[in-house]
Design a protein around this nucleic acid. Structure first.
Lengths: 147, 147
DNA sequence: GTAACTGCAAAATATTTGCATCCTT
DNA sequence: AAGGATGCAAATATTTTGCAGTTAC
């Protein structure tokens, strides 16, 4: 039992998250969730591979992320370049039902993507005939840590 | 000279666009620009390959789209899945300087992406310390043609 | 013990690069 | 004629799939 956890809560939180989602608690899933919990920003597939080191197979990362998205543990964030990024969902995001009503922020300096959970997406007034079901907002600029 | 053009203006517009951007007027570029002009929505790399038929090499499409983006003729639209989509820029988009202040709309029925040029992106009130440089808004729902 | 998960190998896709040839200007 | 653009081949990179062995419950 390596003393790797800075916050002991993490392991509990991780286990309960996985159990709630009916996923078995395995090392790769714990590790990947841990990365999300300690990073506080969104992560791409590549980020995770890099941070996890040689620990897992590339395929495992694909399958793990896919499982997490399906269960509503993480959500994808649209980006202008081709890299999909993933971030933890808030508790009110149940599987399938995504309440992703916050704004995403991409910092040009540190290249991190943050979920601004307190910033609600605005109502958009659309032309006649269009019906909005979901609104995604991605703000680009400089984050509070980079100034 | 095949009578392929529904609107004769297209060919003029295309040639002037390319010349203005210091790109030589070639068949692939004319054809691809034509697709954008007649489609009225955003196109992915795959869309273009499909619509262009066996006409060009896949590599030519990559290079053409890349050139168009660099010259400010088209812009990319962020999506949650992995497919980059491209759409024509308005005239006020000069190379490098992207005035992409409109809202994008993705229809769940027809799967088209539209630039709603008349819908301006709202101001977003960010937490203290964050500086916004650009705001991207992607609305998902049902478009006016699909109801 | 059984179902779920992982790693490996390999297939299928997608993207990039180099170079010889062809087309625009 | 000269530079730029294209097509082909091939190198890379990314994502998916099948299956046998391992692990969680």
């Amino acid at each position: 039992m390596p003393a790797k956890d800075t916050l002991p809560d993490f392991e509990e939180k991780i286990a309960s998250l996985l159990k709630k989602s009916h996923l078995s608690v395995t090392e790769s899933r714990r590790k990947i969730l841990h990365l999300f919990l300690e990073h506080a920003g969104a992560l791409s597939h590549g980020d995770i591979e890099r941070k996890a080191g040689e620990k897992f197979d590339r395929v495992t990362v694909y399958r793990t992320l896919q499982a997490f998205v399906e269960k509503g543990i993480i959500h994808t964030i649209p980006t202008a370049d081709n890299s999909i990024r993933y971030a933890l969902c808030k508790d009110d995001c149940s599987a399938g039902h995504h309440h992703d009503h916050h704004v995403h922020f991409l910092c040009h300096r540190c290249n991190n993507t943050y979920c601004l959970d307190d910033v609600v997406t605005p109502d958009i007034k659309l032309p006649r005939g269009y019906v909005a079901e979901q609104v995604e907002v991605l703000v680009e600029g400089v984050c509070k840590n980079c100034r």
